[in-house]
């Protein structure tokens, strides 16, 4: 499969502290790729680097072969990367409809936004009944749905999801997995950062394991799921 997003040997820093050491990854078209790792492994910084919120000091990030390193966030969003931020970060005081429209904020083809709204609502019919409701008054699962729909409204090629299952009850986790599969089914690639490894690997095509800023393990999801070292990586034991 052709790579959609490529991360080439990035090194990121917070002040004097290095958080990425020559990290390389790739997300193929139409695939679900997950990045696993514990606290302080550099997962969230990877997300920030892709979105242009925290530029790496060296290395490159390519979208469809184009170097997007150091681009301002609005330009990266326009180029086709949407996001489902950590803890969803909906605009709680605004209606569901306005939240969805915010997802299309950066698009240039404003004439087609209305058609996309219909398309997204067809995908998540529940939201159609709730368009006027304030997003902050919805349940956690519904909010996750709004966040996914909002990301789709940008007509992205890639959606980055930061810990989409965090803070949700086990019952909802399965629902979110379905949502992710639904989103992916529309032909959009998904790059997700997760702590919940076994859950993420169940739906992912490929996975990377990040530990203290270095990729320590990677492979097709099915292989990783069977790999005893996955457990090790999470319990902090030595990995091969």
């Amino acid at each position: 499969m052709k790579p959609l997003l490529e991360i080439e040997k990035i090194n990121s820093f917070y002040g004097p502290v290095q958080v990425h050491f020559d990290v390389s990854m790739s997300v193929p078209e139409k695939a679900i790729v997950c990045l696993l790792g514990g606290n302080a492994s550099g997962k969230s910084t990877t997300m920030k680097a892709i979105l242009g919120l925290q530029a790496p000091r060296s290395g490159r990030i390519l979208l469809e072969g184009r170097d997007i390193t150091g681009w301002p966030t609005p330009r990266i969003v326009r180029a086709g990367i949407s996001t489902v931020p950590e803890a969803r970060r909906l605009f709680g005081g605004m209606s569901v409809r306005e939240n969805l429209l915010m997802g299309a904020y950066a698009r240039d083809d404003r004439g087609e936004v209305a058609a996309d709204l219909d398309r997204v609502l067809a995908l998540f019919p529940r939201l159609g009944e709730r368009l006027g409701q304030k997003a902050g008054t919805m349940s956690g699962g519904e909010q996750q749905m709004v966040a996914m729909a909002r990301a789709l409204m940008g007509r992205p090629k890639l959606i980055c999801m930061d810990e989409p299952t965090m803070g949700l009850s086990p019952l909802f986790v399965d629902r979110v997995l379905e949502l992710i599969a639904t989103v992916n089914g529309t032909g959009v690639s998904v790059f997700m950062v997760e702590q919940n490894a076994s859950m993420a690997l169940r739906i992912a095509d490929y996975g990377y394991v990040l530990r203290t800023g270095r990729i320590v393990l990677e492979g097709p999801a099915k292989q990783l799921l069977a790999d005893p070292r996955i457990r090790g990586a999470y319990l902090g034991e030595n990995v091969a």
């Binding site: 966030t73 609005p74 990266i76 931020p85 970060r89 605009f91 709680g92 950066a106």
Partner: peptide, 10 residues
Amino acid sequence: QDEDAAKQMG
């Protein structure tokens, strides 16, 4: 409401 989220919307 949420500056960071707005930024991520572009």
